[in-house]
Design a binder for these strands. Structure first.
Lengths: 144, 144
DNA sequence: ATGCGTGCAAAACCTTTGCACGTCA
DNA sequence: TGACGTGCAAAGGTTTTGCACGCAT
């Protein structure tokens, strides 16, 4: 989904397009990886220093309402945000060193689905986060 | 791992067995599902009303040090705690209605592993949460 | 024009920490 | 006895909220 489509969806859902809102969403849209609130704030203040933290929090609600926000919750307790613009359900390979996140297609194994089915569990959604070291960081770490 | 083994591990690691600590761990041990801090506090106060919230938080550190604590982070932003006593890495089927959580064996699919391998990503850990309705709740919901 | 959105500050929450006292080994 | 553990209260950090003003529609 391109940025204009996001804005369109926003307007069609009855939300106003303010300068702040545009900057806030744009910051997330153009980030190539999930970002923390702190990073998000910096990115937005970069474009408009007057933007308040609470405005971002309020726009989180908007993005959630639009079904566009993905919250990533690493084991370390932090929260990272990213836009979920894919058709396909996807997950991230998250590098523990550089923070780079790469979306991958989801494929729960057949055996897995069978186990769940056997329990007559009605699976609605799932959340998978994969942590490790990306190729580049792995190479770097090997050097030491 | 039975409860005595947990206590043994605790002592062998140089921690003292206090009345509070025992109650705190026991509460989590006997709970059949991951519990919130609030539930954990209630369960412990049930046995000893004097136990302080900060003592539980401090014992979280202890349990983490022992590698026994599993923190579950549902999408709703809450945090739930459970003891991780299995040999095998496991995940939970969590019922969105009754909250019951059932551990299942983990098995990332071969295709999945291959995709990750192809990217030369060095996978360290992963976190999978499965949400849906358990058999009982599904039946209940169908009645309506 | 009018109601939604924002900045600001305060409040609400959750978690951590310092300190003095208590208790386990 | 001595070090670790705890209760209490205060501090810290993050997120939410009330209010008055501002701006998009």
């Amino acid at each position: 989904m391109d940025f204009n489509k996001v804005i369109e969806l926003l307007k069609n859902s009855g939300y106003k397009l303010t300068n702040q809102r545009k900057i806030i969403i744009e910051a997330l849209y153009h980030s190539d990886k999930p970002i923390s609130m702190e990073e998000w704030l910096l990115l937005t203040k970069d474009k408009n220093p007057g933007i308040n933290l609470s405005t971002i929090y309020r726009n989180i609600d908007v993005l959630e309402d639009l079904g566009l926000l993905e919250k990533i919750r690493p084991k370390d307790g932090s929260i990272k945000y990213t836009l979920n613009l894919m058709e396909h359900h996807s997950h991230f390979l998250i590098c523990k060193r550089c923070g780079k996140a790469e979306a991958i297609e989801c494929c729960l194994s057949k055996e897995f689905k069978k186990i769940i089915e056997d329990k007559e569990f009605d699976l609605i959604e799932h959340n998978l986060e994969l942590y490790g070291y990306c190729k580049e960081c792995h190479t770097e770490l090997d050097k030491k």
